[in-house]
Design a protein around this nucleic acid. Structure first.
Lengths: 149, 149
DNA sequence: TGACATTGATTAGACATCTAACTTATTATC
DNA sequence: GATAATAAGTTAGATGTCTAATCAATGTCA
């Protein structure tokens, strides 16, 4: 039984997060963290979202999302308005300034993939992803699953 | 070009960290985070260490290590004494209470590996680790490296 | 030897994140 | 329809983490 994968995963996670932060700063978004990027990513995709949806998408708690959206609002990238249908819900939308970031985000996303998969053939990339999916399910579902050949 | 690996890695990292925290709490170490575990892991291995060594081993900054060791000291698991050879260095050692945790730590470490690698054959585990090592080096060294077949 | 740089560690201040508790609005139940 | 349960969001307080600045001890070199 090997035992290095979790350490490698932890280091890749940290290296990737730092790389993303640096790229965001280079795109003029200093102080924007990857979690903020997740918020914007959902809004690029579907125009508006509630705090609850954003929290689920970014896999963060609601209090965390309150802080994150508050910061993006202060930066002028999103607005927060009460839903007319359900007065409990806050609807978050991109401002025109926020919308303007889309190309930069897409570019960072492409460069991230290109950096991460450098040196991987397509089959090797698929094998890696299948193995990672298996490992994730090992943590999320108690029972072990199918064996990899 | 695929693009899921970073997301999977991020989720595995978080799931593993939560699993470790829960296991530490179940072992009677509530409030002990994985980083504290890294500190103890080095002390199980080499009896004493400076703040600088601990920070390098846990890949955390020195101010962070000041906080982490401060907490472990407050919990009675380690002591901090000034080095007689170099008055700048703080020498961190396990207390007998800290030493007593070793078996529980070893057990958690074994169970972590067993959980992570459930369903992996030894060759599949090796392939995964090789691929992760490649991806990590993609982030740590600018140039792409060897291609995986 | 003495000025300067380097190194180990801490302090200060900031931020993302969490849990617990709370507020307000909607839904369900009797 | 009134009361209880649920849901969305925020506030409060704590923690791990970082960078920048600082302090104290050691090393370097003219």
């Amino acid at each position: 039984m090997q035992r290095n994968a979790i350490m490698l995963i932890s280091r890749i996670h940290e290296a990737a997060a730092k790389w993303i932060s640096d790229e965001l700063a280079a795109a003029g978004l200093e102080g924007v963290a990857p979690s903020h990027g997740d918020v914007l990513a959902l809004l690029f995709r579907q125009k508006e979202a509630t705090m609850h949806e954003l929290a689920a998408f970014a896999r963060r708690t609601k209090p965390t999302m309150t802080v994150l959206v508050g910061k993006l609002e202060k930066m002028g990238l999103v607005t927060r308005t009460q839903s007319p249908l359900d007065a409990r819900c806050q609807i978050v939308r991109l401002t025109p300034e926020g919308e303007r970031l889309r190309p930069a985000f897409d570019a960072i996303s492409r460069r991230l993939a290109s950096r991460a998969y450098a040196g991987f053939s397509p089959p090797a990339a698929r094998r890696l992803e299948a193995a990672l999916a298996q490992m994730l399910s090992n943590f999320e579902n108690p029972q072990p699953e199918r064996t990899q050949p």
